[in-house]
Design a protein around this nucleic acid. Structure first.
Lengths: 259, 259
DNA sequence: TTAATAGTGTCTGTTAGACAGTATTGC
DNA sequence: GCAATACTGTCTAACAGACACTATTAA
């Protein structure tokens, strides 16, 4: 039991005499999907890669090693506010998907002391990271393809954190509409399918377009994009033949393993 | 940025000079399902209620109010270990389902200082809480039906924590096999259905038995219990007509909103 | 006999899954 | 015409959802 629990009331309350944590930082696994033109001359869907942002440490501990962006919270902000602030410092955007997913508190996980880290993942559209890309490897902040990041020896327990984040994002990719974080408001079925497969490589649905338009549409997951005259909007950005544009409706179906 | 980040290496490292958290407790939302015989004389499924364990505080702050069980962590244990220790103190069992689900860190959520709370939920079979039931309202530790607990004004932000926990447990009840935490190893379809409905009242599947035995069984969610001779095992504990017993196989199907 | 639960029969319309085929159009 | 993506046709087996029906047996 904690010492402060022995205190009877506010008037004679004294702060804890025992050891307290040395810090409560938040760390952010920032995912983005980069697109690169296939360069064949023909119109085609771009090559997409799931990438994660890492920072090279300049100080002890783990000097020189790559780590997740993050920083210590102060007593006037929640962990979520802290994470949003850190995200803002890295990407200069505030309105991206940011979600808490786990706490990391194993003893001695940080040689600086008793430090309990709160891990978030962020899904950032590549347009927000355009500068980052230009700077490239010269900088101490870089995007790494996830497989590459997973194979690296990261600072602290950040390797574990990246693995956990990826697992969580993959699960949510299947079961929610977070794919929209990586897509424009209006997109083609081909783009949607490609984004899902970029995050979840073993997602395969040969009849994807049919399922999502002729069956699930009954439940309102997607709706066709229309122009002012109410005519269906199409795009030929990625194909010779124009494709119908869709948008998410905001509806998320309930899932159950029992029926 | 945190002051310790300014330090160059271990040799000249000094601890933080700025304020650090005053404590990192874990709080536990402990759910159980109690069964009560209908008392009609006839064999019938019991009345089941989802209940949550609360403790009445004896000290400032929130003296006299009901709160979640929990306690401060120390530097030699993870938050999970801390939660398991607290759970052990309350229920004397160690092998129940215990799962982390969120952090609560709003400034001033605790008048004692900067205290960041880590919330777990536990699913405890009622057999482990038999004593608790006997003691009843006399004690300062009691089980409350969830609706009742949600309507109470709990200490700290524990009302919010209970709501969040319930939401999480309801979602997992639909999408995973955690129902098994409230069931014996072998159970009838009727029992399973009743347990699910106790946690998720709006779960309705008129053809539940058919779906789970003749369709999903293809995917191996449940298997029939058999005795040593390989003959199907049945139970008439809750019905005149004996019902087939089933067990979970350990298989959890993957869910997707896209197909 | 009745109450209480366990299960089956049967019907209709929908969906899944597979695979082949046609459509469109910039290059 | 080719390449690349966007669809549509068609078939079968499985499934969902509804609702009525039979089965079993202790009290």
């Amino acid at each position: 039991m904690h010492p402060t629990d022995e205190i009877e009331n506010e008037s004679n309350y004294t702060p804890a005499k025992y050891r307290t944590p040395d810090g409560a930082p938040s760390d952010i696994v920032m995912f983005t999907i980069t697109s690169e033109d296939k360069g064949t001359g023909k119109k085609a869907l771009p090559d997409r890669k799931l990438e994660v942002l890492l920072i090279q440490r300049k100080k002890w501990p783990f000097e020189g090693q790559w780590a997740l962006p993050g920083g210590f919270s102060d007593e006037n902000e929640s962990m979520y506010d802290c994470a949003r602030r850190e995200l803002m410092e890295e990407t200069s955007v505030a309105d991206v998907h940011l979600e808490y997913f786990n706490v990391y508190s194993e003893p001695n996980r940080d040689p600086r002391g008793w430090i309990i880290s709160h891990a978030f993942f962020a899904l950032v559209h590549e347009r927000y990271l355009a500068d980052r890309k230009a700077q490239d490897d010269a900088a101490d902040v870089r995007l790494f393809p996830v497989e590459e990041a997973l194979a690296m020896e990261l600072a602290f327990d950040h390797g574990r954190i990246v693995r956990d984040a990826l697992e969580r994002v993959r699960a949510k990719m299947r079961t929610t509409t977070i794919a929209k974080e990586f897509l424009p408001d209006e997109f083609t079925i081909g783009e949607l399918y490609q984004v899902i497969r970029t995050v979840v490589p073993d997602f395969e649905e040969p009849n994807f377009i049919r399922k999502i338009t002729s069956t699930r549409s009954r439940y309102g997951l997607l709706e066709e994009a229309k122009d002012e005259q109410g005519k269906p909007k199409q795009s030929n950005r990625y194909s010779q033949r124009a494709a119908q544009l869709y948008r998410f409706t905001g509806f998320v179906p309930e899932l159950s393993i029992y029926g």
